[in-house]
Design a protein around this nucleic acid. Structure first.
Length: 430
RNA sequence: GGAGGGUUGGCCGAGUGGUUAUGGCGCUGGUUUUGAAAACCAGUGAGCGCAAGCUCUCACAGGUUCGAAUCCUGUACCCUCCGCCA
């Protein structure tokens, strides 16, 4: 959420942000009209309430029938107009939630992924002197993946991960967690069954509601609806909702470990081969809370990216860093990098992470503040970045580390976590 | 599932229908000091307004009342106990 004062003073800028992010800029006009109406109603009601309070002061001292009659009249006048304000404020609140964050100045303007800019890459595309297989074939041959039974039981995009697939996923998660704990992050397993407000706080709602699995519904109050989070970012952003930090306690560095649930409703028929795009996976996610200072946010944004790159480098995976353009970055973000890892089976890159500056957009929604050294209360800045996702990391590793005999070499950093150096379909560990 | 008790400002905590929501801690500014601490003075929820000032705010949402932190109803959450349970 943006500051309404900022929107009033920077109407053009906000409209441009809407246009560049592919949203209808008309919402800004609607919002400002509703805001005007709301403030007029507030003025009228304030005057009426002032009159009422004066009357009540008099009544307190002396009760007369005349005063009581006047007071009853006052009450009626207020009762006539108050529902209008209530309605207008509800509309205002809904419109405020639809205004996106403003992209930073160095974000390229573009409609879709073709507008993204490559920042750098690391490593090289793996060359094979034999015909390489894709992850599905490798996984099935080596008894790590069962897609047929997965879809029998869980439907389209269902999968069973088995044997060394399980060991490698756990190895990856533990490897990444340990790295972030060493860097001073607090490891957290958050709840992923969370309330509607949690998704609004993180900025996933209203835009992404159809992407989340809805669990329970309370017809009397939509605030009591429960959804499954698609990333640990959702519960981590709200962990400190409605709380106020002291500046000396910042930054807060969290590394979440959670399952992730995604309906993939807008991606029907996309990436149907193997288990590249699935409804459930696990992920290690970084969330940082820092003070309200853009330079501080930018510093953390780069640092968080570096940490995620370090993991891919340790795993020996070739990747590229992309700076997302306005049309491909999502409504709540101010700037976003995607990390794309080389996957030989796709003969292309696949997204394995995204690193975002949220400025105070989430903090306003979640009401997370801090008191600075001057005693002023401000909204915090928040950032998030994937540390490592399970499924797509497995794909990149299997495909990159496959050998001519059909086996897969375990990346050296994972050997201590897996207890073996080669995956060859035998279910044995050292 | 059942019974009871709670939710007040950055934090603690008083307030059971009627001035301006006690008090303390912390924080900010000032006085004093070589500097600091201590002490003392002032400020310290939000909005509107140049200002005087006005309005809102006691978990959230309704209701009763001329008037609600206070009474009633619903919801969320926390605590204690009973039952069930991996």
């Amino acid at each position: 959420m943006l500051d309404i004062n900022f929107i009033r003073e920077n109407k053009k800028k906000v409209e441009t942000a809407c246009t560049n992010k592919g949203l209808n800029p008309k919402i800004v006009e609607n919002l400002l009209e509703t805001d005007k109406k709301r403030r007029q109603l507030m003025g009228t009601i304030q005057a009426l309430r002032a009159q009422r309070n004066t009357l009540n002061d008099k009544l307190k001292q002396k009760r007369t029938d005349e005063l009581l009659a006047k007071a009853a009249e006052q009450k009626k006048a207020l009762q006539d107009i108050e529902p209008q304000l209530k309605q207008t404020e509800a509309e205002f609140g809904q419109l405020m939630l639809q205004v996106p964050n403003i992209p930073l100045d160095d974000v390229p303007i573009g409609k879709d992924e073709s507008g993204n800019k490559k920042v750098r890459d690391w490593g090289k595309k793996k060359k094979f002197d034999f015909e390489p297989k894709d992850h599905a074939e490798l996984g099935i041959n080596l008894k790590m993946l069962d897609l047929e039974r997965g879809s029998k039981v869980a439907g389209f995009r269902g999968y069973y991960l088995t044997n060394d697939g399980v060991l490698m996923q756990n190895a990856l998660m533990q490897f990444a967690l340990k790295k972030f704990v060493e860097k001073g992050y607090t490891p957290i397993i958050p709840p992923v069954i969370t309330k509607r407000q949690t998704f609004i706080n993180s900025g996933h709602f209203p835009w992404g509601e159809s992407e989340a699995y809805k669990l329970a519904s309370d017809e009397t109050d939509p605030q009591n609806d429960y959804f499954l989070a698609g990333t640990a970012e959702v519960p981590l952003v709200s962990m400190y909702a409605n709380e106020t930090f002291k500046e000396k306690d910042l930054p807060i560095k969290m590394v979440g470990y959670s399952p992730c649930y995604r309906r993939e409703i807008g991606n029907y028929g996309k990436d149907t081969k193997g288990f590249y795009r699935v409804h459930e996976f696990t992920k290690i996610e970084q969330v940082v809370i820092c003070k309200n200072d853009l330079n501080e946010s930018i510093k953390w944004h780069e640092k968080m990216l570096e940490f995620s790159e370090e993991i891919l480098q340790d795993l020996g995976l070739h990747y590229q860093v992309m700076l997302m353009c306005t049309g491909d970055m999502g409504e709540p973000q101010a700037k976003k990098y995607d990390l794309e890892t080389w996957m030989p089976g796709r003969n292309g890159y696949g997204e394995t992470g995204s690193d975002s500056i949220m400025t105070d957009f989430q903090a306003r929604r979640a009401n997370i503040k801090y008191v600075n050294s001057k005693g002023e209360t401000k909204f915090v800045h928040m950032l998030n970045n994937t540390a490592l996702p399970s499924v797509r990391a497995l794909i990149a590793i299997w495909e990159t580390y496959q050998q001519e005999d059909g086996s897969i070499k375990v990346p050296p950093v994972l050997v201590p976590y897996m207890g073996k150096e080669v995956i060859n379909g035998e279910n044995k560990i050292k």
